[in-house]
Amino acid sequence: MAKQGNNKEETRREMTGLERLGLRVSNMINHPVAQIQRWVTIHRLDSDGDREWEEVIGVLSETDGIDITFNDDESVTLRWEAYAEEDRPVEVSERAEEPVPF
């Protein structure tokens, strides 16, 4: 049998700077601690290009419900309000109580 793993050429697509920055910012916003405190400070890294940084900040500034504070150290602090009770996603448990078979 021939080893297929050695014969195949694996193609990996490299993430763009914009994708990498977007993923980092998304992970920071969605982090459980950030969700509890409803704010997060995002620091610009040396690897974040000007165009990518401006694009992500532009998208965030256009998003309803997010307040942006530009800090002196080139970081930004995002703040948002908690959902109103009627707007909060509802968690539904689909486990039905089944009678014990014995």
Rank of each mutant, 00 (worst) to 15 (best):
S75T: 07
E94I: 07
V90I: 12
L45G: 09
A82H: 02
S26C: 12
V92W: 03
H43L: 12
G58I: 02
V100A: 03
G65S: 04
E10Y: 14
L60K: 02
D46K: 13
P99D: 10
E85S: 02
V100W: 06
D72P: 08
T77N: 09
G58H: 01
E86D: 14
F102Y: 12
H43P: 03
S75G: 04
E54Y: 03
T41I: 12
A34G: 08
V90L: 06
G22A: 11
E52S: 13
E81L: 04
I36E: 15
E94K: 07
V56K: 07
V100K: 08
T11H: 12
W53D: 10
D73S: 10
V100F: 12
S26H: 11
D72T: 12
G65D: 02
T16K: 02
N6H: 14
E81Q: 06
E98A: 07
D87M: 04
Y83Q: 03
R79V: 01
L23D: 11
N71A: 09
E94T: 14
R20G: 11
W80N: 01
E19H: 05
T63M: 10
F70A: 02
G58P: 02
K8N: 11
V100R: 05
E91W: 05
S61A: 12
H43Q: 14
W39E: 12
M15A: 13
I66K: 01
E55F: 13
R13L: 10
E86M: 01
D87Q: 01
R24E: 13
Q4C: 13
V59G: 04
I36R: 15
W80E: 08
T69D: 15
R51A: 12
E19D: 07
